[in-house]
Amino acid sequence: MGSNEQTVLQFVPSPTSVSARVHPLVIFNICDCYVRRPDQAERVIGTLLGSVLPDGTVDIRNSYAVPHNESSDQVALDIDYHHNMLSSHQKVNPKEVIVGWFSTGTVTGGSALIHEFYSREVSNPIHLTVDTEFRSGNAAIKAFISVSLSLGDLQLAAQFQEIPLDLRMVEAEQIGFDVLKPTNVDKLPSDLEGMEASMERLLALIDDVYKYVDDVVEGRVAPDNKIGRFISNTVTSLPKLSPHAFDKLMNDSLQDQLLLLYLSSITRTQLSLAEKLNTAAQIL
């Protein structure tokens, strides 16, 4: 009787890897692999590389596809290929280790088998699914870990449990979505063009704030204290400088820049002069 009480049906949650973080490169690579998949293949699968951060988050930074064959009840994975590719990747960056595997589409019957294989490569692998067929109507990217269901000491089954996934789009933002989003960009934005775009966006934002404040003052929109605090924080974050001090700062940096411009122009003049002289000196 006493022993019966201890036998509890429960999920054994894995203590580590509470969440995952995906870099945009991984998504790009998976999409590319999917576009280039073999004729009959329904989905592509592959290995995820990255590292486990000190706080337990799994940082997925790289990936490669692994060829495989799938029928209704069995999956054949090219293990040699997987190991070759892994050793190649490790030559470049030894810090990136296997953290899991990815598949396009959603979790299917074969997934458990593949997951078992990756469990042998690394403890608690992450399974990342990317819905490249947009079956749910949007771009669903999900991460799972395996959680086993046990009755006392007896392993009964395992199930995929979804874990929170953080899409690290900062890198993509740094490059700019205007380069990564359209299917065709004729020209990379130059320094000043990028600057112009940023300024225009800033201007639009300021206009929006103005409009909002005016609306609130005139009673057209219900005031929201949170937004009000944000605005006042932003305004006070400007350093308070006397106009005189500000002018001085401004003029100083302007002059610095002008000096540099002057220096670089004078260097260029020297260069073209030197070139003329060098070729002329030949005629002796």
């Binding site: 945009p24 998504i27 790009f28 999409c31 590319d32 999917y34 576009v35 490249t132 947009f134 949007n138 771009a139 990217i141 899409l167 789009m169 993509a172 979505f177 380069v179 990564l180 989003k181 359209p182 299917t183 065709n184 960009v185 990379l188």
Partner: peptide
């Protein structure tokens, strides 16, 4: 720069 339509769709979504 070119991106596949699939990538473009994902980026728009994300």
């Amino acid at each position: 720069v070119s991106n596949s339509a699939l990538v473009s769709a994902f980026m728009t979504e994300l």
